[in-house]
Design a protein around this nucleic acid. Structure first.
Length: 490
RNA sequence: CGGGGUGUGGCGCAGUUGGUUAGCGUGCUGGUCUGGGGGACCAGAGGUCGCGAGUUCGAGUCUCGCCACUCCGACCA
């Protein structure tokens, strides 16, 4: 078993942190709050990126790139927006350094002060809508469907690898539409893409919902979200899709002429998912033996490890192993044959197990005699001996099974940890233990704030297609027409 | 911003009332035996003890100042 590695029961936060470090996904950098994403972690992110990028393009979006810096004045144009982000902005004030006169190193050159400070983007609505003003004149220019892959900076007080870092990678979509209906449809379409990705690729069930006003994106009319439940009973917002109405069009004066030659403001959406998805992915499936990755996002889906004593044995095994690797690769499966002589088989078993590789094939002298392969599943830790004949079909099926099994496991975990609660006492008790708590809420910000104050729980989502049901608010006792999801969140 | 804590080989740590050449685990290098779940043994390399001042015959250890990191709160994707 892995040494120096916390279990989930001992200390969940520590377990998560150890996992990220020891599975070689990321580490803290010399810059406070900023992480270095290591090759193995980045490989997972690249898969996430590639998959989502294709989904966006398949639905008509194009990629573009906007500046890292945003003139300070842009922020004051949308009141709610600046309100939401002002407290966590990094600001560039100078453009030059010089040698210190006392020889102590370099210092900021006070003569090189910027006329107007630049904000390092915490999100790009402002610079993008300032640009869109010039791109949009006619209904013929609409819809404008743009996505950007970028880094953003939010100066968070407390950071955690992947879950909350001062700088993070994400994609942000920014679209402009002629009508309200079309923009709302876009918001939903993207939400569906996010949910689809989470469930089919990450094997992570999510609830689609809309945010309460208090949890809404700064500057949005409505914020839709996908919420997932982590193993410690806390909720994680995994993606958001915002209907921005005409807020930004008005703030940045983006108008178009309709067919009827009438000048109107355009309607907007924005939506994003970030490297936080990595955090979600890690927490969704991993266990006390390390990372568990769904096959569809695993950089290495199958690892083959030779077991041998003499060079002649390795030679014979390698011949078989390479043949198997090639048949698997022909099926589009990513395979690593680890024939390094610098590490022992047992060491490799642990290594790949820790890194969450879904399937491990081991071939030793015994297998060579019998024409077999030992196949070990990461999700169940089960080992079985299969015939080498037609192993590629077996592997293909197993990968599908693992993907499905991880989803089902995560789904039943969520179901087991979702509760309907009707009294305040029960609510407090339940929230303390974790999980999604479905309860009635009177719809006021005041009540929401009081509940947060008392229990640290927030409304994670008002589920879409929520069944209407008359009830009484958990706190105020006022009438309510539906249950909303409360939970403590990341 | 408030309250704790920690800075000692790459990493994780110990270092007693101040006292010779600063240790341990792990990792690293070489070698021999090994190899179906993180192997054993042998031999090595690797240190301005966070920075600066002070007390002292003598400071990793005591005092003061500074810096960095980290944990707990408030804030947040």
């Amino acid at each position: 078993m892995a040494k120096d590695f916390s279990t989930r029961d001992e200390n969940y936060a520590q377990w998560y942190n150890d996992l990220v470090i020891k599975a070689d996904l990321a580490e803290n950098s010399a810059v406070r709050g900023c992480m270095v994403i290591k090759p193995y972690g980045y490989a997972i992110w690249e898969k996430i990126q590639a998959t989502l990028d294709k989904m966006f393009k398949d639905t008509g979006h194009s990629n573009a790139y906007f500046p890292l810096f945003i003139p300070k004045s842009f922020f004051s144009k949308e009141a709610a927006h600046v309100e939401g982000f002002a407290k966590e902005c990094a600001v560039v004030t100078h453009y030059r350094l010089k040698n210190a006169e006392d020889g102590s190193g370099v210092v900021v050159d006070d003569d090189a002060k910027l006329e107007e400070e630049l904000i390092i983007r915490p999100t790009s609505e402002t610079i993008i809508w300032d640009t869109y003003r010039n791109w949009i004149q006619s209904y013929r220019d609409l819809p404008l469907l743009i996505n950007q892959w970028a880094n953003v900076v939010r100066w968070e007080m407390r950071t955690r690898l992947f879950l909350r870092t001062a700088e993070f990678l994400w994609q942000e979509g920014h679209t402009a539409h002629a009508t309200k209906e079309e923009a709302e449809e876009e918001t939903q379409k993207i939400l569906d893409i996010y949910a689809d990705f989470a469930e089919k690729w990450m094997a992570m069930p999510v609830i689609k919902g809309v945010k309460s006003p208090a949890e809404r994106f700064a500057g949005a009319i409505d914020t839709y979200c996908i919420e997932a439940l982590m193993q410690d009973g806390k909720a994680l917002q995994a993606g958001t899709s915002h209907f921005l109405g005409q807020n930004f069009a008005k703030a940045f004066d983006v108008k178009y002429l309709t067919k009827e030659n009438k000048l109107e403001y355009v309607w907007a959406t924005s939506w994003g998912v970030s490297t936080r998805l990595m955090g979600a992915l890690i927490m969704a499936h991993s266990d006390d033996n390390g990372l568990v990755l769904p096959p569809k996002l695993a950089p290495i889906q199958v690892v083959i490890i030779p077991i041998y004593r003499k060079p002649e044995q390795l030679e014979a095994i390698s011949e078989k192993a390479v043949a198997i690797m090639n048949t698997l690769k022909a099926k589009g499966i990513s395979v690593k044959y680890d024939d390094r002589d610098t590490q022992k088989p047992g060491w490799k078993f642990n290594e790949y197990e820790f890194k969450g590789v879904p399937l491990r094939l081991a071939i030793g002298p015994r297998d060579m005699e019998n024409g077999t392969v030992e196949v070990a599943r990461r999700d169940t830790l089960e080992k079985e001996i299969y015939s080498m004949t037609d192993i590629e079909t077996k592997v293909e099926h197993l990968l599908e099974q693992i993907q499905e099994n991880l989803y089902q496991k995560a789904l039943s975990f969520r179901e087991d940890n979702s509760f309907r609660v009707d009294t305040w006492d029960e609510f407090k008790e339940r929230i303390e233990k974790g999980g999604f708590v479905y309860a009635h809420w009177d719809g006021t910000e005041e009540t929401e704030a009081k509940i947060k104050e008392a229990t640290k729980a927030t409304i994670r989502a008002i589920p879409l297609n929520n069944p209407l049901e008359n009830g009484k608010c958990i706190l105020s006792g006022n009438p309510s027409k539906q249950r909303v999801i409360f939970a403590k969140a990341y």
